[in-house]
Amino acid sequence: MCACSCGKKDIYLPELATITDRKMMNDTEVYIRLTLDSGEELGHKPGQFVEVSVAGLGECPISISSSPTVKGFDLVIRNAGSVTNAIHQMQVGDKLGIRGPYGSGYDLDTLAGKDLVFICGGIGLVPQRSLINYALDKPEDFGKVTVLLGTKDFDQRFYQDEIAAWHANDAINVLETIDVEHEKWTGNVGVVTNLIPKIEDELTDAAILVCGPPIMYKFVLMALAEYETPLENIYVNLERRMKCGVGKCGHCQMNDEYVCQSGPVYNYSELGAVPEAI
């Protein structure tokens, strides 16, 4: 609440959450599971994000990696700056500040009943996992689930146990590739777009959900254009620096869209008027 007795909620004030599980995923990514100290659930939709606070260092926007069908919520955080570095030092029992969930997330009504194809580059898997696991928990709501996953090199792969479980699960088809060969890797080698021809039959009717580094979108979209995937079937999950999370500060704006409000997931057919998007 606002301190001046106006009785209004302070939209910038984080609430505390406790780390209940933690695991290093690789050299640069840490997985943490959090529960809000209030005892409430976060109440997010797949594809939304939170602002994570470390007192003394600041806030950063982080995608929620877990499905709302499970208790608590998961974040996977790359060590990329002072806030995320501090989170990497934290252990189970430590506390973080949380605001959110923010953003519009995936449009579950439009996706209902459709086959889902996830195209993920590196940590692009993190936000997509919130919907992948949601779809696996609610098989009656969606058609087939397919995941194409490209990772730069073998040592950067993460969620490995879970991906192994997906491989063993008939409800989901997972194709993986790594950019460069590795002695322990017997699977596909090359960029994620190389996997697209392998699911050619899926590319006309399924919803194609894309998330990865900025450069990946251009190549994935070019590949999908070759298969004449209708633009309205493509969803992109875009990265911006949402500083306030509530449509005020201006940092995440691309043309007239505030990613923190209308994104970060967009239907690609709606981005024709948003040249700054990709």
Binding site: M1, C2, A3, C4, C6, D10, Y12, L13, P14, L16, S53, A55, G56, K95, G97
Partner: peptide, 16 residues
């Protein structure tokens, strides 16, 4: 916007 103890709660600051 707010003050805090590094290991504690965040408190709204409003001094209009």
């Amino acid at each position: 916007l707010m003050t805090y103890e590094v290991k504690g709660e965040y408190k709204t600051e409003c001094n209009a």
